[in-house]
Amino acid sequence: MAGVLESVNQRTKLVGENRLELLLFRVRGKQLYGINVFKVKEIIQCPRLTSLPGSNRVVRGVVHIRSGTTPILDMSLATGGPPLEEVNGAFVIITEYNGATQGFLVASVDKIINMNWEHIHPPPKGTGREHYLTAVTEVENHIVEIIDVEKILAEVSPVKEDISEGIVSDDVRTEAGKKKVLIVDDSKIARKQITRCLENIGVEVVALEDGKQAWEHLKGIVEEGDRPQDRYMMLVSDIEMPEMDGYTLTTHIRSNDAMQGFYVVLHSSLSGVFNQAMVEKVGANDFIAKFDPDVLADNIVSRINHG
């Protein structure tokens, strides 16, 4: 697996093309799961794990990689299944989410595939399987389930969700009551976190689940003879989403004459040195890494003060 990941320069060519690369893996049995390659730092054979007393039961232990300590989460346990028993011969997918590094213990790693977000869809409702999923797709006649990693991490290591005192003044709260913000995110937990943060500032929130929904909503506003920038103070959009990603949504917005001047912030757990370059490439106004309520609140307050 040493050469399985392509270089950052190669992967950034996907930006704005509504494409992604999925790393396929198995947790148990034959079911295939997927994770965006942008989140993956490396893939290793499972090393010897050091137990961490008092940790969440999903954390099987820690490993020391390049002078750093990385927690290893059992992907089967994390998604409501039994623990992975055959650790010898298993793999660890080292990932970076929200600026933190963690590994996911999986039974096997399959391959990387290049896909269009149009072929990735929200999970079917009412099956019970969507609880830990953000999307599903089909590869070579096999269903691939894309796991809501943000939900897993929020359960294993809950993040601070309250805004610190002093960030939002009374004057800002008064002005915020006149503002409305459109947010787009396919993760239920992320939508709740963002909505709570913005509502605590005082702004009205409209929340949608993916870029395609958002684009249809924005086009509908224009068809009504209005402009999104007149209805919303700003758009806060995730990047990874089924149907249409945040990069492509931003590209569409920037190519529409009626939406010129609409303030767009990309808000994502994607990390890396390429983020600012990608923001500039698609024409977004800013990038915020998930999820820090103070950083998000600062951005909203600045927009209220200067927007």
Rank of each mutant, 00 (worst) to 15 (best):
V4R: 13
N9H: 12
N9S: 14
Q10Y: 01
Q10T: 13
R11F: 04
K13E: 15
N18Y: 08
R19C: 09
E21G: 09
L22M: 11
L22S: 10
L22K: 06
L22H: 08
G29A: 01
K30G: 03
L32F: 12
G34D: 08
I35Q: 07
N36M: 08
N36R: 06
K41G: 04
E42A: 06
P47R: 04
S51T: 13
S51C: 00
S51D: 05
L52I: 14
P53D: 08
G54D: 12
S55W: 03
R57N: 05
R66C: 09
S67G: 13
T69M: 14
I72V: 15
D74A: 03
M75R: 01
L77E: 09
A78G: 12
A78H: 07
T79G: 06
G81S: 12
P83N: 05
L84H: 07
L84V: 06
E86M: 07
V87S: 01
V87D: 01
G89C: 04
F91P: 00
I93R: 04
I94Q: 02
A100Y: 13
Q102W: 06
Q102I: 10
G103W: 04
F104C: 04
L105N: 14
A107P: 03
S108Y: 07
S108H: 11
V109Y: 10
D110V: 15
D110T: 15
K111C: 06
I113D: 09
N114T: 14
N114H: 14
M115N: 03
M115C: 12
W117P: 02
W117K: 03
P123W: 02
K125V: 14
T127W: 05
G128W: 05
Y132D: 14
L133H: 04
T134H: 07
T137N: 09
H142R: 14
V144H: 10
V144R: 01
E145N: 12
E155H: 11
V156K: 04
E161C: 07
I163G: 04
S164Q: 10
E165M: 04
G166M: 08
R173Y: 06
V181T: 06
I189P: 02
C197D: 07
E199K: 14
I201L: 10
G202N: 06
V205M: 11
D210K: 06
A214W: 03
H217C: 07
H217A: 01
L218I: 04
G220T: 05
I221L: 14
E223T: 13
E224A: 14
E224Y: 03
R227Y: 09
P228S: 12
Q229T: 04
Y232I: 10
M234C: 15
M234Y: 07
V236K: 00
S237C: 08
D238L: 05
I239L: 11
I239R: 00
E240L: 10
E243I: 05
E243P: 00
M244C: 05
D245A: 07
T248L: 09
T250I: 00
H252V: 00
R254M: 00
D257C: 00
M259C: 05
S269N: 11
G272D: 00
G272H: 00
G272K: 00
N275K: 15
N275L: 15
N275H: 08
E280Y: 03
G283A: 04
G283W: 01
D286L: 12
D286C: 06
V295H: 10
L296A: 11
I304R: 02
N305L: 13
N305Q: 14
